[in-house]
Simulated scan of single mutants.
Amino acid sequence: METRSYEARRSQIETYFDRTAAETWRRLTSDAPVSGIRATVRAGRDRMRATLLSRLPADLHGRRVFDAGCGTGALAIEAARRGAEVVAVDISPTLIGFARERVPAGLAGSVRFEAGDMLAGRHGRFDHVVAMDSLIHYDLADIVRMAERLSAVADETLLFTFAPRTTLLAAMHAVGRLFPRGERSPSLVPVAEAGLRRRLAAAPALSNWEAGWSERIASGFYTSQALELVRR
């Protein structure tokens, strides 16, 4: 599945989150004070995480959840609080280290954090797979391929986010260039929802899946759109 574009982007993302901006993301995903722009990103991410979690059963006892691209682990920890057995994977060993430090003692046996490739498919099957803001740096073709791989281990739902193609988002990206180069994240790849749905519907590996619910979250410098695939 790994295309040249996918491998190149994955390498950039690993470098950014594991070394260049690991401390920035540790602060952003904590309660530490951050700048005004980053505060809007934090608020948007909090809303998106709550939105994705709202699509999962309130009681997750007896269910397995895969957090693909888990970052510092907030979504995985909340799913474990609801009773799920959670496996959470991220390409950045540094972020995984932060995530492990944040697991409450009472949940230590319910959530497992692992550094590695979220597409490896070596963790068994899951009732629900969630990929929050871990596909947003890839182009349309790679997003569809990644959805195919993630759906292969999901029994009920696959929830993921993408960067919607909007004029506002393009303007915010231009503002983002004002950040010091070392603090810039890998650029997002805006994707039109209609085109994404068409490509998902045409993907042979997703013939047993249906794209349904979608919701966009916009908060200052943060814009992301969630999409749910449900197994037929």
Rank of each mutant, 00 (worst) to 15 (best):
R55Q: 09
A141R: 10
F160A: 03
V65W: 08
R122Q: 07
M48K: 07
A154N: 05
E101R: 14
A99S: 05
L159H: 13
R55M: 02
A58K: 01
F98A: 09
V153D: 06
D117V: 08
L95M: 14
A152G: 04
R55Y: 08
L75V: 01
D59V: 12
R100C: 10
A108L: 06
L60G: 08
L56M: 05
A120P: 04
G97F: 05
A68N: 02
V153Y: 00
A120R: 15
M48W: 10
R49Y: 04
I91Q: 12
M132A: 08
G109H: 09
R122I: 13
L52D: 04
A115Y: 12
E101I: 04
D117I: 08
F113W: 02
Y138W: 15
G73I: 06
M146I: 10
F113T: 03
A141D: 14
R112Y: 05
S110R: 15
R112G: 04
A115S: 13
S54V: 00
V129L: 11
T51R: 13
A152M: 10
Y138L: 13
A141E: 14
T72L: 01
D133H: 07
R122P: 05
A79S: 11
V153K: 07
A76F: 09
G71L: 00
V111C: 05
E114K: 15
V86F: 09
A152W: 02
R63S: 11
V89D: 07
T157M: 12
A141F: 13
L119R: 04
H137L: 15
V144K: 11
L75F: 00
G116K: 13
T94Y: 07
L150I: 12
L158V: 14
D67Q: 09
T157H: 11
A58W: 00
Y138P: 05
R145G: 11
H137Q: 07
R81S: 13
M132Y: 04
L75Y: 03
L53A: 01
P57D: 04
R125E: 11
L95V: 01
F66N: 01
V87D: 02
F113S: 09
P104N: 03
A115M: 15
G116Y: 11
R102F: 03
R122W: 11
A50N: 06
L53P: 14
P93N: 02
E78P: 00
Y138M: 10
L150T: 08
S92G: 11
I91M: 14
E78Y: 04
D133Q: 03
R112F: 00
L53E: 13
H137D: 04
E148D: 06
S54E: 08
R82H: 06
A131D: 11
T157N: 05
I136A: 15
L158E: 01
R100L: 12
R125F: 01
D46A: 15
L159K: 13
L158G: 03
L52T: 01
A79E: 04
E101S: 12
H128M: 03
L158H: 07
M118I: 10
D90C: 05
D127V: 11
I77M: 14
R122C: 07
L150V: 12
A120Q: 15
L56T: 02
H128Y: 14
